[in-house]
Design a protein around this nucleic acid. Sequence first.
DNA 1: GGTCCACAGGAAAGATAGGGTC
DNA 2: GACCCTATCTTTCCTGTGGACC
Length: 336
Amino acid sequence: MIEDGRALKDDFIPLEVEFRNQELNRLSEALAPCLEGGTPENTVIYGPTGTGKTCIAKYTLNQLQDEAPDIPTQYINCWQDYNKYRTVERLMEGLGEGDAIQSRWMAKDELIVRLREELDRPYIVILDEIDQHQEPEILYDLYTLPEVTMILITNRETQLFHRLDDRVTSRLRGAPRLKLTKYSSAELVSILETRARWALSPDAIGDTELEFIAENAAGDARVAISVLRSAATYGDRTGAERITERLIEEAIPGAREELRQQTLEKLDGHQLRLYNIIQEHDEIKPGDLYAAYEERSEDPMTRRTIRNYLNKMEHYRLIESSGRSRAKVYSLVTDE
DNA sequence: GGTCCACAGGAAAGATAGGGTC
DNA sequence: GACCCTATCTTTCCTGTGGACC
């Protein structure tokens, strides 16, 4: 059934991005000046997950590189490269200067100086999940580099700005902002149709089944594509010739489990222990959670470290919390 | 309304690990 | 191999918040 699985991958960039023409045009306009030696505009893209923020940013940079291969670009996920050092490391890599960094020997400030020296032409950088950066002052450092143009991606615009100091906020306030909203069911069907045409054998899936996936994805293209991928994989495994509604229903839990397992693999022993304790309870108070964790650990981490771990797991959407102060409880995320 | 206390999260210091220099 | 420099992770200390109880 699957003929070319690439089109079903999360990081696949399609030849054409559907239903985002206005946003693509605005982003292209913001970057266009660099083609004529001018100064492009920094841009902020925000909206819920699965609305195509990363996709339109990467797509626009691909287009730009087709026109001007000499202009270097770089994609940085600030959840993975969350401190200044790693971010600048990635920036150097984007300039083909990754080898210039001799491990930890080079201090952060020295790295910035090195980056400044290497910049002799426009450099366009996507900073994805910028609200998750642990040292948001990096934006000020980058702002002082006239060659660097930033495309900042965040889920919530307010989360980004409330963490920035006034110098950066005042400068970014004037930057173009692109707000992306969730896809409608009809839009998701069209996106899925295109992906299915690329990835699957002809007639592997019909309109009714695509609509069924779209309705279950609640406007999130990432979820919709993940379910399609899971259904097709499951169909291949079981020898089915077509993806049916029943196959999709069977594949949905698998798609969710796949995403959950991928995330669980990122946790260390202490974090997994916390996850297991929460899993054993419908809801658990932070104090009770720590007591249970302490009981099961030979060398337990402190409460402060555990709070950091729990924040990380909440961000991964593995657990969630409700209530505040003494009324606070943790539970597993079950709605995805 | 006042007090208590669980809880969150920032800041600074300490511990650890990786790699370079002599 | 000892020492130095660095980033990263963890701990300690502290303050602010807000729910529970009287």
